[in-house]
C-alpha cells in the first residue's frame, strides 16, 4: 500500500500537472468570480466561503479520472489486483495520493485566495480547518466515482454527474463552518459534522470502491 502511494505521488510529480493543474484551476475559478459579481468587498466577503468551497470541489473533480484510468489503460490495475495487497488498501492509498497532490495544495493556497475575496481574517483558521477536514472526503468520494466509471467511454462526464451530488453534504458542512466563522458564530458544529463525513468516507468507501473495481476488472 505504501508502494502504491509512493508510486502515485511519483507519477503525479513526474507527469507534471499533478500539483499544478488542479491548483491553477482553483485559482482561476476564484479569480473569475469578482468579475462576475462585482468588486464590492461586502458582497465578496459574504460569498467567499461558498466560492472557495465550490472551487475546491471543481478542482478536485478535475483530476479524479486519473486515479484509476491510467492504471486501467496500461493493465497495471489488473496486475495490482492480483498482487498480495488488499484492493481496499490500494483504493485508500490512491485516494491519499490524490489528496496529497490535489487537496493539500488547495488547502495551502486557499488563504491567499481568501484574501482576494476579502474573507474576514477571523474566518481564515476556520477556512483552513474546514478544507483540511473536508478535502480528504472529496478525494475518497472521487475515488469511489472513478472506480465506478473506470474504463467507460464518456467516463469523465459521467464521473462528474455521479460524484457532484455525493459532494453535497461535504460542501454544505464545509462552507457553512467557514461562513459561521466569518460571521463570528460558532463554527464547531459544521466542522465536527465535516469530520464525521470524512471519517465515514474513510471507513466505508474503500470497500465500495474496491467492490466496484473488482466488477470492472472482471
Amino acid at each position: 500500500m505504501r508502494a502504491v502511494l509512493l508510486r502515485d505521488l511519483q507519477l503525479a510529480v513526474r507527469a507534471g500537472g499533478g500539483f499544478g493543474l488542479g491548483l491553477a484551476f482553483f485559482a482561476i475559478v476564484v479569480i473569475l468570480v469578482p468579475f462576475g459579481v462585482g468588486p464590492e468587498p461586502e458582497v465578496l466577503a459574504r460569498i467567499a466561503p461558498g466560492i472557495l468551497w465550490v472551487a475546491a470541489l471543481l478542482a478536485a473533480l478535475l483530476s479524479l479520472d486519473r486515479i484509476f484510468a491510467q492504471d486501467a489503460e496500461d493493465g497495471a490495475l489488473a496486475l495490482i489486483a492480483t498482487a498480495p495487497v488488499p484492493l481496499e488498501g490500494v483504493v485508500l492509498a490512491k485516494a491519499l495520493a490524490h489528496w496529497l497532490t490535489t487537496g493539500l495544495p488547495l488547502v495551502l493556497a486557499a488563504p491567499v485566495l481568501g484574501v482576494l475575496l476579502h474573507l474576514p481574517a477571523g474566518a481564515m483558521p476556520w477556512l483552513l480547518a474546514s478544507l483540511t477536514l473536508g478535502t480528504p472526503a472529496l478525494s475518497l468520494i472521487g475515488a469511489f466515482g472513478a472506480a465506478l466509471t473506470v474504463g467507460l467511454r464518456r467516463g469523465g462526464l459521467l464521473l462528474s454527474l455521479i460524484v457532484l451530488p455525493l459532494y453535497i453534504p461535504t460542501l454544505i458542512f464545509g462552507a457553512e463552518a467557514v461562513a459561521r466563522g466569518a460571521q463570528g458564530l460558532d463554527p464547531l458544529p459544521g466542522l465536527l459534522l465535516l469530520a464525521g463525513v470524512t471519517l465515514g468516507c474513510i471507513a466505508l468507501l474503500p470497500f465500495a470502491a474496491a467492490a466496484a473495481l473488482r466488477v470492472t476488472l472482471r
Binding site: 508510486r7 511519483q10 507527469a15 492504471d71 493493465g75 497495471a76 490495475l77 496486475l79 492480483t82
Partner: peptide
Amino acid sequence: GDEAAYASHEGGVKAVL
C-alpha cells in the same frame, strides 16, 4: 492464488518511471 503471478498482454509499465 497466493502461489501464482499473472502476466497479461499489457505489462502495466509506467512510462514516466
